[in-house]
Each structure stands twice: as C-alpha cells, then as structure tokens.
Nucleic acid binder design. Structure first.
Lengths: 339, 339
DNA sequence: TATGGATATGAAAACGATTTCATTCGTTTC
DNA sequence: GAAACGAATGAAATCGTTTTCATATCCATA
C-alpha cells in the first residue's frame, strides 16, 4: 500500500509538498504539481482515511439512530439522510436500537470514541439526562423524535397537528366512536399525536374512552390483532386513527377478511403516506410527512454544528403535515385532498 | 478530551501500561490495573477510534452496497447484516448505489482509502473487471447478487430454482400463457430466475413469446403499468411471474381496480415473501428467500477474509428457496404450502 | 551461586497523514 | 540598494494509539 512517503520519494519532493497537492493548497508550482499527480497515479496512491481522521480530528461519518430499518418510514428517512449526507461528503452509519435503551447507549459510544462526527437521533429510547453527557463529545441532533428537555437542535414535524387533522376529518364524517391506535408509550411523537387526537375530540365535544386506546401497534400483524380486539368490545368504534399505514392496512385486511366493509363499518386513517396506501382496496386516508425535507434539514444542521462546535443550543425547526384523503374514510364519494 | 497520555500522567505510569490495561494484556499487576481503571473513569477517558484504526490498520467498519434501502428486500438484508456485523463488533456503512455504476465505483473508494475493512456487494452495477482492481485493498464478498467471473466468496440463493418452482407451480395449475416480469437487465439474479422460468416452460413444452416479457418492473407503480400493458395484448396471458412482491401487488391492485378477478382472470406469483403478501386480497403466492441466513453467512465470510487476508478465492455458498402458495394462484381451493 | 524464565514496567518507534515554522529565492517598493 | 513581501519548498512536530525492545525484579532450578 503506497503512502505519502512513497510518493514523496518517487518525486524527490517532501511529504509536505505532496500533501499540498492532495489538499489543493496554493503555493505549489505547476511543474511539481504535475509530477506529484503522475506519481500518485503510477503508485495507485490514495490518502489513508484513518491517518487523516486522526490528524484532522474528524471522520466524515455520521451516525443515524433508528429503531428498525424494516419500518418503511425509517427506510425512507435513511434513504433521504444518506443522500443529504453524501452531498457534504459524509458517510452514514446505521444504528438500529431495536427499541432497546441499552443498545442505544452502547451506540452512543461511537460519538465518545470519535468514530463519528455527530449523531442524528430519529428515535430516543433513554431519558434525555442519560444522553446529555455525550454532548461533550460531539453534536447530537434530534430528527423526527424529540424531547422538550433536550437542549439540542431539533428537526421535527407538527405531530399534534397531524393527530388533530386526521381526527377532525373523522369527526367531520360524523363519527363519534373513534378508536386510537399508536406505536409505543415512550415516543413523544406518539404522545403528541394523541394530544392532537384528543384536542379534536374536545372541539367536537366527543368524549374519549380508554378502552378505545391501543398503544402497542407497530406492524401489520398488530393491526389485525387490534381489529379483533375492537370488534370484541361491547360498543364497537366506527372509526379508528392509527399511527402508521402498516397498522391501518392490517386493520383493513383483517376487517375485509371477516366480512366487514371499509369505510362503511369502520373508517380507518393511517399515517406516513406509504406506498401501501394506494395498494389496498379501499385506498388508505393518511397523513403525509415531508421526510426528505426533514432529513435534509437535519443533515444541514449537524454539519453546521460540527463546524461551529456549539452543540448545546435548542433550536426547533418544524415542518407541516398534510392530510391525504382516500377511500378508507370517505366511501364512494369523490376523493378530495386538503391541506 | 482526555488521551491515554492524561491517564498515564494521572496514575504516574507509562502509556504502555495504560494501553495494556485497555487491551487486557497480561503482565499488569492488579494494583496498577485498578489505578488505571480508576483514572480512566475519573477522566472519562475512552480510546480514540481514529488513532486505533491507524495503528491497528483496521477500522471495524464494513460497507454494504445496495441499490435502494426503500426496497423492502434490501431493508431486510440491511437489518440482518447490521445485526450480524454488530456481533463481531463491526459497524455498517450503507452505500446506496441507486443503480448507478458511477456511484458504485465512487463508494468503492471507501475500501481503497481504508475507511472500511471490507465490502459486501448485494448489488453490482459495474462489470466485474472494473471492480476487481479494488480487491488489492481489501476483501469483497458478493451477497445475493453474483457474477461467475468474480473470483471472490459469494453467498447467494438458487435463483434458477426459484424461477423454476414458481413457474412450475403456475404450469401445474394449467396455465400456458405465462408472462414474465423482472427488475433489471443487468442483474444476474433476474437472469437466473428467467433461466429457471424458461426451464419450467420447456419441461411442460410451453413456448415463450417475447411480448410476454417485462424486464423493467421494480415498484408497485411498475406493476400497475405492466398490468395495463398485458391487458392491451391481443392474446392476454392468464398468469404472470414477477420478480418482487411489490410488483405482484401492483398488478393485483390494478387488476382488481379494473374489475378483473385474481386468480381467475390472472394468476400472480410474487417473490421475496414480504409482509404485503398477507395483506392483499387475495394473498400472494410467493418465493421465500432466507435473507437472514444469507446475511449472517456473508458477514461470517468477510470477517474471516479480513483476518486471513486472502481475498481472491471463489467460494460459493448457496441457500435454497421455498415456494409459498397463497390465494393469488390457487383460487378458492385450500391453500397449501410446499417445499 | 549462577542461570534462566516468568512477571512487570517504560522509552521510543511506528502507523500515515497535516501543519507549523523556517528558509530560500525573486520581485517590488521607497 | 536595502527593506519588504510573495511564492515555493522542506524539516520536524503533531494527532493518539499500539508494539517492539530493553530493563529490572523475583523465584525456581541445576
């Protein structure tokens, strides 16, 4: 493996000059520059990343924390983040916490050991006070997930509004027995949506019963399970708000299999605007999240923080959500889309 | 940021001894070991990864090349690979080539610059002779995708067999007008499936017409498009083999929307056994791929190659595929599952 | 009582880059 | 014609580890 020393020797110049050529520093004569470039080509030389990282105190790698990559929402987030990071010359290390606080804490050592220049948290499994100490080692940016106590830049979506518009839509269709379905108790995203959900109910003077709440639904299978539970209730809901399109699709699938009709017997709202929403029959009313913009902003911010080295500033960037009305809530009426 | 030097100073020992404690070398007295551990704790010391990488000539990072993470098959592959890599203490860098040969070549520089210890290619966009020169910098392992000319370890699935069993299943149902639908011309995975497809046809003395071939279908939308194309043919196929469940789902969705019935008017076979196969109505007959086993094996192999430093050996590890029969091919009969 | 082997420790070199500082040579400028 | 400055180059320090080599002590064995 050729090193900068080899290039220097071959050209009869010093390491310094070779380094200058590599880094496009001024004050290198055209003659020597050519000489160096030729030698580099001839030796197949390429600078060693570890040596550069050590000397420059920067790895050009970012860590992105997500619960699971197989969740389509997070796939989309990873795709967008990787593309945005690449524009800045950063690589992305994927950290799947699988909802485990220990795994999350463990991955945090990537920052401590300087294996990454910064961490984007799209999922939080620990209390903030456990995460906070890592701030001394590098920037942390919250993306999608958030925590009011976290004194770091946060890029998020207005989840309260998301829960609100989806629920309001169901109320406008005349529903009063509306079930609530979300993924996880810990997530502030889910909590915010629930606030929006209840806000809409309150506006319409509709009361909420705790037996209509299902807070452990993540996947298609969970949706199927939840549907069965709802149908086992003495007073069945006529509509359901869900925290993901997969869960919504599971509910719809199970309902159809059992001979129910959507939305006549049960109106269903999803979340995320994934591809499956256009696949099922009926198609799924959902809430669109501007994932690309959010990812781009998170990367912009973290790159800036890496440069300025001020990590403990709470700046909040919020993007709006949008209701997409499809067939799972409005029957055979003409489908309309509203902001 | 505390360094090993700081720990040495605080304890009054040398860097060497501190390093020995960190690396669990023998020949450190219990007394000094405790002293060092206390000092490390007190200073919040943690070894710097870049320095270690430089000195040890190893980064403990692997690169995984995939076309797009939003493709559920690759999400699953990434999840499994990340978990397997973590067991060995490796981090995973995700490289999305987005089907671009240039991007792929560009990401290959991660190996050349020693930013990663090895590369797992689950997607190949360039001819092997373009990739081959990178072998001098570190190990490359093929996983899922493959190339006969590639003199490297290859972990793959028997795609010829996969195409064969899926097609044979359709032939057994009495179909003779069977369309073929795949993603990409370049991929050897797709080519192999086509070989298996044609092999089955030949066994049943059924001829294949090129107008039944659609080789550019990746997503749900492509499936919808392909369905329309098939229906525009003068002689419509009665069954279709597809290279992914998303495409199959797209075809089914569009067919139902247009008033056709599945499988009566069109039998559909998918590939990958994704979650959506149990979601659609009818559920989708598909081919299950043992992704986890494949990913685990690929990681095992690359870790071994990193240690032994012998990269240019063609070893092939092949895993079997399995047909999962569901409703999209067998009508209202009882669903059965066969190996 | 030498001799040799285990145990314990440290000084210094090495990994491969970048940067600081010094030096030299021209060219202006007053 | 001296001073000042810009351009071009290199020697050596530096980043933070690990490892090699040397040294010292202790204990058992011949």
């Amino acid at each position: 493996m050729a090193t900068i020393e080899d290039v220097a020797k071959l050209t009869g110049l010093s390491r310094t000059t070779v380094s200058r050529v590599i880094n496009n520093h001024p004050y290198v004569s055209e003659e020597k520059r050519k000489l160096v470039l030729e030698a580099m080509e001839k030796l197949g030389y390429v600078p060693n990343s570890s040596a550069r990282s050590l000397r420059n105190q920067k790895t050009s790698i970012l860590a992105l924390f997500i619960p699971r990559i197989t969740n389509p929402f997070f796939s989309e987030l990873v795709e967008a983040t990787e593309i945005a990071a690449a524009e800045y010359g950063y690589q992305l290390i994927i950290c799947q916490t699988r909802y485990s606080p220990e795994k999350e804490l463990n991955y945090m050592n990537l920052l401590k050991t300087k294996q990454v220049d910064g961490v984007i948290l799209a999922s939080i499994q620990n209390e903030w006070k456990k995460l906070k100490p890592f701030l001394q080692y590098g920037p942390i940016v919250l993306c999608n997930e958030f925590d009011d106590r976290a004194n770091v830049p946060t890029v998020r979506l207005d989840q309260v509004y998301g829960g609100y518009i989806a629920t309001k839509h169901l109320l406008e269709q005349g529903h009063t027995k509306i079930a609530y379905c979300s993924g996880g108790y810990r997530s502030n995203v889910a909590k915010s949506r629930e606030i929006g959900f209840k806000k809409a109910l309150a506006e319409y003077k509709v009361s909420f019963h705790e037996q209509y709440a299902f807070r452990d639904a993540f996947h298609i299978a969970d949706g199927k399970r939840v549907f069965q539970k709802m149908m086992a209730l003495s007073e069945r809901p006529t509509a359901v708000f869900t925290g993901s399109d997969e869960v919504a699709a599971g509910i719809i699938s199970e309902a159809l299999r059992c001979g129910y009709r959507i939305p006549e017997h049960l109106a269903v709202v999803g979340f995320d605007n994934q591809a499956i929403t256009e696949l099922t029959n009926p198609t799924i009313t959902t809430v669109h999240q501007p994932v690309k913009q959010m990812a781009q902003k998170a990367v912009d911010i973290i790159v800036e923080k890496i440069q300025t080295k001020r990590y403990d500033v709470q700046e909040i960037y919020e993007f709006p959500l949008q209701l997409i009305v499809r067939a799972s809530t409005v029957g055979s009426e003409l489908h309309k889309s509203e902001a």
